[in-house]
Design a binder for these strands. Structure first.
Length: 322
DNA sequence: CGTTGAACCTGTTTGC
DNA sequence: TGCAAACAGGTTCAAC
């Protein structure tokens, strides 16, 4: 019954969930277009919409320094974009001040759930959810930031401030011994841990579930209980999942587009995410959904037994198809 | 320390 | 048919 829905999906606008692979895809698309460009001006459409608009903007511009959104515009106008990079789920634009005056800053963009950052050829169109438009020193290059649910955040960092410092290592860069050490000091369930940006930066609900499936580990398994072999499986699975997802241009779940407006196609490779009740591609058992860390968690009850902990959150044991 | 749930959000889906 | 409730989830915070 669920499978009928997928045929309807193509009529729906794609939605997003920007985790590490999606952000990496966006960065790779935007980097050649934006590196070296100067920001001529910045517009904050939701600031002057109405009275409530500015409170919306104050929330999006997380830094309390920008009590007045105009200050934000003044701070970045004239700057040159020296680098476009990714830090966990954040996009980072390194900004050189105009005329070499002032300090180097970085514009931090977190897309939250529905944030979109795209390079357009005009300052239009702007939707009701367009919150920032940068005009650049090259015709036909306007950077649009839109966010329907407004979970995303814009932040301006100087060299001293470092809210990124509390984040864990990048899952594609961390070495295995360090990964094992980080695992060993945590007693949380694996799913909770993978969502914790202080453990590793960049994983979200999709890739946490997908990685655990590939590692054949139960999402409720306790981190500190894993043996070396299981830790190795998890480490490899995370890297493999993310690498494949990046190669596929990310996962598009309605509305997600990269910096060029393209959709990804890793959603077709999902093994468990949003496949509740569907047969496991590996063993045929029905994919099950449970709540861990207040998040929907999808897994195969047959393939992912390793490290399974017996706890009350686990539904009554009921043998599946396999 | 770890976990849960609420809050923040709007658009879509589900259920009565 | 229509409307209300549920759902979706990245992050932060409060409470246990």
């Amino acid at each position: 019954m669920h499978s009928f829905r997928s045929s309807i999906r193509c009529a729906v606008e794609w939605f997003l969930m920007p985790e590490l692979p999606e952000v990496e895809t966006i960065v790779r698309g935007l980097r050649p277009l934006l590196t070296g460009r100067r920001i001529l001006d910045a517009e904050l459409p939701s600031a002057n919409a109405n009275g409530a608009g500015s409170s919306i903007l104050r929330r999006i511009l997380r830094d309390p320094e920008w009590k007045n959104p105009v200050d934000f515009v003044d701070a970045i106008r004239g700057s040159s974009i020296s680098a476009v990079r990714r830090h966990g789920k954040h996009l980072v634009f390194d900004l050189h001040p105009p005329n070499g005056k002032g300090s180097t800053r970085s514009l931090l963009v977190h897309l939250g759930m529905t944030g979109r950052l795209t390079c357009e050829e005009t300052p239009e169109p702007r939707s009701a959810h367009t919150h920032l438009i940068l005009s650049l020193d090259r015709p036909g290059r306007w950077l649009h930031y839109t966010d329907i649910r407004r979970f995303g955040r814009l932040q301006l960092l100087d060299a001293t401030g470092d809210p990124l410092g509390s984040l864990g290592p990048d899952p594609l860069e961390v070495a295995f011994p360090e990964f094992v050490r980080l695992l060993g000091v945590r007693r949380a369930m694996l799913k909770s841990l993978l969502l914790d940006q202080r453990f590793l930066r960049g994983l979200g609900n999709i890739y946490a579930d997908e990685s655990l499936f590939r590692a054949r580990l139960h999402p409720a398994a306790l981190a500190a209980r894993l043996n070396r072999q299981q830790a190795r499986r998890l480490y490899d699975a995370i890297r493999e999942t993310l690498t494949l997802a990046i190669a596929a241009g990310g996962s598009s779940i309605a509305n997600y587009v990269d910096g060029l407006g393209n959709t990804g196609y890793f959603q077709h490779e999902h093994q468990v995410y949003q496949r509740t009740g569907d047969p496991c591609f590996r063993c045929g058992s029905r994919i099950r959904k449970m709540i861990i860390a207040s998040r929907s968690t999808h897994f195969c009850p047959n393939c992912q037994r390793s490290g399974r902990s017996v706890r009350r959150t686990e539904p009554t044991v009921r043998k599946g198809v396999a």
